[in-house]
Design a protein around this nucleic acid. Structure first.
Lengths: 192, 192
DNA sequence: AGGATCATACTAACCCGTCGGTATGTTTGT
DNA sequence: ACAAACATACCGACGGGTTAGTATGATCCT
């Protein structure tokens, strides 16, 4: 049986961090769950924090890769946002543990590593904001509200799913479609 | 100088928990910041967890009280939601530290205390969901989307503000108004 | 071809600081 | 005088991280 030890450690750490929290999970817990010893862990990672960072990186990189694919296809703003939302929800569903850790334990990283994570995150959010701005110039998005604020509201809607999403009746894709619909058209009936 | 020691401890604990995290904050840190000793803390609180719980309680009770006031005034669904949103954003702004701790460290509570917090939270969310359901029956809210999903989307928008809100150009009230506008009418231009 | 050498990938045992919590003493208001 | 409201000193457990050592291949020299 061949296993990628560092990858397994990241995986298991993500599970444990997500369910118990970063500080409440000891490295002993991790190595025990992974059936290795502490020596093995510290052979691949210099600190516990590096593990935390690796979890963040994995999620952000996957998310960003998906977004770039969509950007490459030159959709108009509204359709672009729609697809970005769906892609984001699918990422959250796929990297459930990583996302949970990302949002809950981000601030636990040292300033240097946190800055790195934050920079990547800003880059990702800028893709959404730019779509909204273009939509405003084009006239399809309303201009009486700040683009930045709309972006933050949108990310709230989407990111928050990590707190309640479960393998339920809706697939992540369907869920994303519905959320896009809510964001774009609102909760009120159009005829009213 | 008269000070309410337990209240001060909750206050300071909220600050420290919000900025460093629950586990990363030692009870020594807390008593030091509060200029008392451990004896004083453990005179009022049996465990560190009780402190955490008290922080949650304070925020939830304040939130719930505001919501009840709005319910008592019998607004129609759309206006009721608008006011609930504003009230929620104002609460988040006022109890910034408590909210941060609430959302980030909730899962750290023991099952019993967590259940208590969750029950109160469910009750609060039900108020919003009920307004949306009524709106659907009345016809002002769209019925092609699940009320529960709309509620969750809304809470995402609102709760997420705790991650980025800052004393900026917009007052909490204005911010709430804008978010209500986004939720109710959506990002797209009406004429398109 | 095959022994010598070295890098890889770990293991087992341990160190020392820190943590939540407690036991007991002291002060203060009434 | 006596309870309420603390302060002081300390305990046992556990935390992240380190250390010395080792089995197992890969590589190189002759």
């Amino acid at each position: 049986m061949i296993v990628d030890v560092p990858e397994t450690l990241i995986q298991i750490a993500a599970e444990l961090f997500a369910s118990r929290g970063y500080d409440a999970t000891s490295v002993n817990d991790i190595v025990e769950a992974a059936s290795v010893t502490k020596g093995a862990l510290y052979y691949y990672f210099n600190t516990k924090e590096e593990l935390l960072f690796a979890i963040h990186q994995r999620f952000i990189e996957a998310e960003m890769a998906q977004a770039q694919k969509i950007l490459a296809r030159y959709f108009k703003p509204a359709e672009r946002i729609r697809r970005l939302i769906i892609s984001l929800i699918e990422s959250i569903a796929e990297f459930r543990n990583e996302v949970t850790v990302f949002f809950r334990e981000r601030h636990r990283l040292s300033p240097e590593l946190f800055a790195q994570v934050q920079a990547a995150r800003d880059q990702y959010e800028a893709i959404f904001e730019e779509a909204i701005r273009e939509g405003q110039q084009e006239g399809t998005f309303r201009s009486d509200l700040d683009a930045r604020l709309m972006t933050l509201a949108l990310f709230g809607q989407c990111n928050w799913t990590y707190t309640w999403m479960k393998p339920g009746p809706l697939t992540p894709r369907e869920l994303g479609e519905h959320l896009a619909e809510i964001f774009l058209r609102g909760a009120l009936n159009r005829s009213s």
